[in-house]
Amino acid sequence: MNLYLDFLDHQKQLISSRTISSHQDIICDIPLIEDTQICAKTTLYLHDISTWKTPGKTLVFDKVRGLHQTTLSTRSLINHFIKTTDVSFVLMKAFCDHLNVNHAIPFVMGNLRLVPLSGTSKRPAHWIMAHQLHDLHTDNQRPEYSVATFEGRQRIHIPVPEKTITTRLVKARKILDFQLSVLNDFCNAFNLTKLLPEDKYLSPIDHRITCTEQRDKPCRETLIDLLAHLHCNTNSLLFGESGFTVKETIKMLNERLDEDGKV
């Protein structure tokens, strides 16, 4: 399916539009950058084109480097970004495991939110950089499309329904809210410096995202659950197996804390 890229002025009025498709005359005009990478501050959207008859596998929409294609898959780009970011993927996965997020897992840490628009295990997915997203609505002319407006005055018509994208964005926001809640618990429990105000972690699109209030476990249960997931994930990553299940690890941690008389 085609994509449509709009360029806007300072008043968000349309300046020009561009149609993007697999047609050879169109795709050949898009620069190929073999060693491109995701930049958290400038990359807006990754679109999988591995089924198109073109050398490229991914279209990269970037507000500085412009639209370009690469032979790297979206999965390769995301994995490289995670490896080169000062964030522990194992820790992030522990947060997701605690919330039972095990499908179309977004990359959420602080004010970074990279959100897949479908599952990622069977084939590469499209990815939207939610921290760069300003607005999202259904395309009036193409109901099966969403119109995503980003920083840098670019607007992309994406062939994914608005409801689907919103569901993914809500999931990512819930993970962020949980991370902030846990960190606040740490600050309160150990008298640490408080976090920055919440709005420092929010994105412009958050005004359109409604999250139901989470009724989470008490602080001790939450932290033990996170530690158990972190322990099992780390062992699995380093040694190929976790040794104990999450449930067994939680039981051992509770027993050890009770023995030590710690709450």
Rank of each mutant, 00 (worst) to 15 (best):
240 G>V: 11
3 L>N: 11
127 W>Y: 15
23 H>P: 03
44 L>M: 10
31 P>Q: 11
29 D>S: 13
92 M>P: 02
168 R>E: 06
114 L>I: 14
212 T>H: 08
133 L>S: 03
134 H>P: 02
38 I>C: 00
77 L>E: 08
29 D>C: 12
137 H>I: 05
67 L>S: 10
205 I>F: 02
256 R>L: 05
156 I>P: 09
110 G>S: 04
220 R>K: 01
37 Q>H: 13
188 N>F: 09
171 K>T: 15
86 D>G: 07
132 Q>Y: 03
31 P>I: 05
116 P>G: 00
59 L>D: 06
219 C>Q: 06
199 D>R: 04
37 Q>F: 11
203 S>D: 14
110 G>A: 04
28 C>L: 05
139 D>M: 06
71 T>E: 11
134 H>N: 13
197 P>Q: 06
47 H>E: 15
109 M>Q: 12
48 D>M: 01
74 T>G: 00
46 L>S: 13
172 A>N: 08
104 A>M: 15
183 L>F: 09
253 L>S: 01
145 Y>G: 02
65 R>P: 03
33 I>L: 06
12 K>S: 05
91 L>P: 07
230 L>R: 15
50 S>E: 07
200 K>M: 13
124 P>S: 14
252 M>G: 00
59 L>F: 14
98 H>I: 02
192 L>W: 13
169 L>C: 00
262 K>C: 03
207 H>V: 15
176 L>F: 13
162 E>H: 07
32 L>D: 12
165 I>S: 01
159 P>C: 03
221 E>H: 12
31 P>D: 13
134 H>V: 07
249 T>M: 05
221 E>R: 02
194 K>Q: 14
222 T>I: 08
213 E>L: 06
202 L>H: 08
33 I>D: 09
94 A>V: 03
176 L>W: 11
107 F>M: 12
205 I>P: 01
2 N>A: 04
211 C>E: 10
60 V>R: 04
214 Q>S: 13
69 Q>W: 02
70 T>H: 08
231 H>A: 13
67 L>D: 06
227 L>N: 07
238 L>A: 14
43 T>A: 02
223 L>W: 15
204 P>L: 01
36 T>I: 10
147 V>S: 00
204 P>R: 07
178 F>I: 04
16 S>F: 11
196 L>H: 08
81 F>L: 07
32 L>Q: 14
100 N>V: 01
166 T>C: 09
157 H>A: 07
161 P>F: 00
160 V>F: 04
181 S>Y: 12
26 I>Y: 07
261 G>Q: 06
124 P>H: 14
57 K>F: 07
74 T>I: 10
44 L>E: 05
66 G>C: 13
241 E>K: 10
201 Y>E: 13
211 C>P: 08
189 A>D: 12
226 L>Y: 07
55 P>S: 03
191 N>F: 13
163 K>C: 01
73 S>W: 06
88 S>I: 03
204 P>N: 11
103 H>V: 10
152 G>N: 03
101 V>I: 15
37 Q>R: 11
52 W>P: 12
151 E>Q: 03
163 K>G: 00
30 I>G: 13
126 H>W: 03
